[in-house]
Design a protein around this nucleic acid. Sequence first.
DNA 1: ATAGGGTTAG
Length: 659
Amino acid sequence: MIMAPWRSFQLQPQRALGTIQSPTLLLFTNCFHSSNPGSTATQKDSLFFRFKFKSASFKHLDDALASFNNIIHMHPLPSRVEFNRFLSALVKMKQHHTAVSLSKTIELLGIPHDIYSLNILINCFCHLHVVNFGFSILGKVLKFGLEPDIVTFTTLINGLSVKGQIYEAVDFFDDMVAGGYQPNLHTYNVIVNGFCKFGKANVAVGLLKEMVERGCEPNVVTYNAIIDALCKNKLVVEALDLFSQMIQRGVEPDLVTYNCLIHGLCNLGRQNQALALLKKMVGQNISPDVFTFSIFINTLCKKGLVSDAQSIIKIMVQRGVEPNVVIYSTLVHCLCYLGKGKEALALLNEMVRQNMSPNVLTFNIVIDTLFKDGMVLEGQEVVNMMVERGIKPDAIAYNSLIDAYCLHGQMNKAREVFNLMVTDGIVDIFSYNNLINGYCKSKKIDEAKKLFDDMPQKGLVPDSVTFNILIKGLWEAGRTRTAKELFKNMCYHGQQPNIITFSILLHGLCKQGDLDEALTLFKAMEKSHLEPDLVIYNILINGMFKAGKIIDAKELFSRLSEKGLQPNVYTYTVMIKGLCNQGLIDKAHNVFREMQEGGCLPDGCCYNVIIQGFLRHKDVPRARKLIKEMVGKGFSADATTAELVVHLLHNGDLTLRKL
DNA sequence: ATAGGGTTAG
């Protein structure tokens, strides 16, 4: 159980909800809850709705719906203005779908639309990613003889740009200007934001000038959007330039500005500069908030410094900033990253216990880690826990679940999850790639192929990863001809083979001993302007040894540095193994020494390879010495080494016997 | 307008 030292500072006791499980029970309990008047008292409700509040606001959808059911029975009915107020309250709760359907109800009650209600409706459709419906509402506006206003256009522009159709958004913007409508600051901010989210921060920077020329002086929101985008594109220098520029133009940076810059600096590892900015902002009486702390906590977590992160949490609590679910999830992630799955699970349970509802992200991190660390049962239990708490996995969570089940050969479960995604209409390329990969690894190549063929039907195009997975699967299933055909057909499917494609095929060919074909393929690869990397050379050197071309292998090895590549532990292991197999045990030993002089430390596999070399040559003293060294470094003998030792046991050698 | 999760193929 992990102890949270800051626990005493935080989390005011909240309403106990821990025992409530069924929605019915929840509704039941709500009936007795004094802070929830909306659902029962009709008279009070209408007063509340009509006179008491300037703008309606609800905490729960249930309250809003109950309120709605009451007011539609009032005589006379509330005015359009009041219904609009209600609809925008729903929008604030991100209940766009409900807003659309209630808008229809209101219409059916005989309350005519006005431009405000139609603008709200357009906004809802845009948020539901059906901009076309938004445009059909624009048609309705005109049909009703209503005048679209700048809000109508800005909303539609926003709808296009959040869908990534930024150039369509700009076209529409131009049409609007041509139609005599003046864009305002908000319109520009929507466009700027679109470019920023679309990875075109530079275009957004260019827009600043146009804004000034048009008399729409950029405000702090404009600058923040661009600064954030620049930071996320690692262009912190440019972001800092813009930061100075905004100050020069008299726009005061706010907390968001600083948070964005601090985030960008931390991501580039420039924490000292980030801290300097923190100091600067505090000097300007801008207090760090939970976002600011979160950035620093995350940065420390990524470095594995959990205790430092925990200290920051203490500080923030002392400053009166409450850690939230993001802060906790970051810590959970950190523990997972450090391989402490059990402790992460404990912290997750602690969150639940303290009523800090973990969300799909928190659960996903823990589930992923537990499965990857082989704790299948624990992982499954957390999945159940998530479902019990009514948290619906999203595409990322589902995909990592598919991957997890595949990893443990539970293909039926993986398939089940995949089918759920199909039902929900959220299968993506990752789902297919993960599941195809799972089938290949479980030697169910026909299932894999079937899935691959099924992709276009779902509107998905196989990517290079899909091809690579399937080529490898086919090859390993012995269907090398089909694998080669698929490789040749890749480009007809719009996918270029990449370096990994080549490595898969080269590996397969070398393993079969087809060195000549491998070398032909290697030439083809160079011709297609793919720069071979160390992995490719490792495969080739290995293949050359296997084919008995020791001179070629040694030459290729020695030419690595002139290609700007430094041999790694795999390269050396390949060399050592090759030399050992050719009986050149002393040469192998030289390489083993050379690698360490060059600063490359042997791993367990490397030790096993050279030890096996010595054992096969009945050189027990040197084998014994290296076994001792290996065990001392915390590596252990593999099955082959152990077997060889058993054969030599008649020596009664104690060091070896220990294995 | 700002903070936390997936890169699956060698």
